[in-house]
Nucleic acid binder design. Structure first.
Lengths: 333, 333
DNA sequence: AACAAATATACAAACGTTTGTATTATTCTC
DNA sequence: GAGAATAATACAAACGTTTGTATATTTGTT
């Protein structure tokens, strides 16, 4: 590996001059800089980032911790964050926790050992509070939380418009004439699911219906749970569901198909997250879309600008067949 | 930040002893080691990986370069690689090229500057050969290529069973009684698409059909191209397509629906990659499934074991509705 | 008890940068 | 052309580890 010292001795100058030349410092003469650049190119020099970071006492790595990397939602968040961070000269180290608390602790430790420039995290389902995060990253490391956030932690937060979104989705089901609307509500340890549930509740109550605990299905976010809870919902006389996730909505649809219950004429359903399969299935699944790419960008910008406020990213109700009882919309992709 | 020197002075020993104690070296007395561990824990010490790596002249980061992170196929490869690498004490730095040659060069440079332990790459579509890879990473950096590989580069290669897979898929369409089978063939700059095309060709010729260039559609791997080429295929009298990708197959299906051509009775289609939407759409799309998770694991193991051979991962034909003309299979998920 | 062998720790250099300070070379002013 | 001001470069320490060698301590042998 060729170092700045190699370049320095090749040119008969000192490493410090080479370092400054490569950094474009005005303290080195233009012709010297040119000579250094030329020699660096010729010798195939590439700066050792570790050494550089060590000396500078900082890193150009931003650590991103997500529950699952193969969820489109998170993959797109990472993509958005990456685009902004790369442009600002940062690299992204991705850790996935697979929804495990233990993995999350391990990931945070690793990132801390790298002395990363910042940590961006969406916590795992198993994490009930942010104590471990606070404890591991300390006071000085910039922290940005996105999507799943612990409100009591310091630092910026980028969240979806969960309350309003769930309100809109539920309201829409009501307007379509569905009479008994349940919800697949997700994990109550996560603020965002609590908010969605509140939005659902408000919509129900605002339209004079009764909020009925017996058709609120908790912890329902994966496919199997969706099927299971849908069966209970059918038995409880529901004719619609607002699901706080797309995968549970998918399970519900398969369960409905199994029972020969037509969607959307006899049963309506709206999911959340706008995973790409929602548009492709039959019937296509209406979904409360997030904007993950923008969310990732916002998280990155919050770090770059040193902000510590909470930013709310709008959610958009994407209407497809699964909730189109009155057949009054053109189905979009 | 607390360093080994802090621990050392707190205990009245030298940093070297602390370093050895923490590394579990037999050169330090058991009680000293215990004291050091205790003090490290008490002071909240975490090793500075940058300094460690710099001194040791090596890194515990493995760089993974993929075209797109939000493709399930690649996300699962990353997941597989990560599981093996994490267990071996490595961390994974992910770069996505978005199919751009320029980004690929930049990513490789970055990883080289980090002096990563190894580079695992699936090259972008724009990369026509591996010269830039060879040039940037030099002789000494371990290289593992997966899925999209340049055969002339040194190092391990993990590839799908492309020829056999495409052969199987095409053969199956023939056995279902389709008479004029075209192919959405992908990019001929990629070896894997050339191999799939060869498999298709062999299957066609083996069954006494004529290999017809006019129904081989190149560069067809994204949705829009799939639609476009499918239209041409219809005009050319095709009644089936083997698509080297799932997204192009999806486009084709939408085009067929638009023309009211029933699938699978009047037109059969099989895609490749087993993206999860294939099982969810209607009609569900038969697909030549890869095993990306296993592929990622294999790539990681090839690096860990220092292998430089080529490993072939089987492909599995997943039969669903889109090719089920004779209605002779139970549709699986 | 004296010496060798072993064990345990200390010393110091090194990894490749960056950067504050010191030194030398150049330009300007009168 | 002497002195001041400025520009350009050199020197050296530092970032936090690791590790080869040297030193000090303990143990074992006769």
């Amino acid at each position: 590996m060729v170092t700045i010292s190699d370049i320095a001795s090749a040119l008969g100058v000192t490493p410090s001059t080479v370092s400054r030349a490569l950094a474009g410092s005005p303290r080195v003469k233009a012709e010297t800089r040119a000579a250094v650049d030329e020699m660096a190119r010729k010798m195939g020099y590439e700066r050792n980032i570790m050494a550089s970071n060590l000396r500078k006492g900082r890193s150009d790595i931003v650590g991103v911790v997500v529950p699952l990397i193969n969820r489109e939602f998170f993959a797109n968040i990472i993509g958005g964050a990456e685009s902004v961070l790369n442009a600002a000269g940062y690299n992204v180290l991705i850790c996935q926790t697979k929804e495990s608390f233990e993995s999350e602790v391990k990931a945070l430790r690793t990132l801390r050992n790298y002395h990363v420039a910042a940590i961006m995290i969406s916590h795992s389902i198993e994490s009930e509070n942010g104590d471990h995060i606070r404890e591991i990253i300390g006071e000085r490391m910039p922290l940005v939380q996105f999507d799943r956030v612990f409100p009591d932690l310091p630092g910026a937060k980028i969240v979806g418009e969960n309350f309003e979104g769930a309100y809109k989705a539920t309201k829409y089901l009501i307007e379509q004439g569905y009479k008994r609307i349940g919800t697949l509500a997700g994990y109550m340890t996560c603020l965002l699911y609590r908010e969605r549930l509140e939005g659902y509740r408000k919509a129900i109550e605002d339209s004079g219906m009764e909020y009925d605990e017996s058709i609120v299905f908790h912890d329902t976010i994966v496919y199997d749970k969706g099927r299971e809870s849908c069966l209970k919902a059918i038995d409880a006389g529901c004719d619609a569901l607002y699901s706080a996730g797309d995968f549970s909505a998918l399970g519900a649809i398969d369960e409905l198909k199994l029972h020969g219950i037509d969607i959307p004429s006899r049963f309506g359903i709206i999911g959340t997250a706008n995973e790409s399969f929602t548009a492709l299935m039959t019937p296509s699944l209406s979904s409360l879309g997030q904007h993950p790419y923008e969310m990732g960008q916002a998280a990155a910008r919050a770090f770059l600008e040193g902000r510590t406020d909470t930013e709310v990213i709008p959610m958009e109700l994407l209407l497809r067949q699964s909730s189109n009882r009155n057949n009054d919309i053109q189905c979009q992709k």
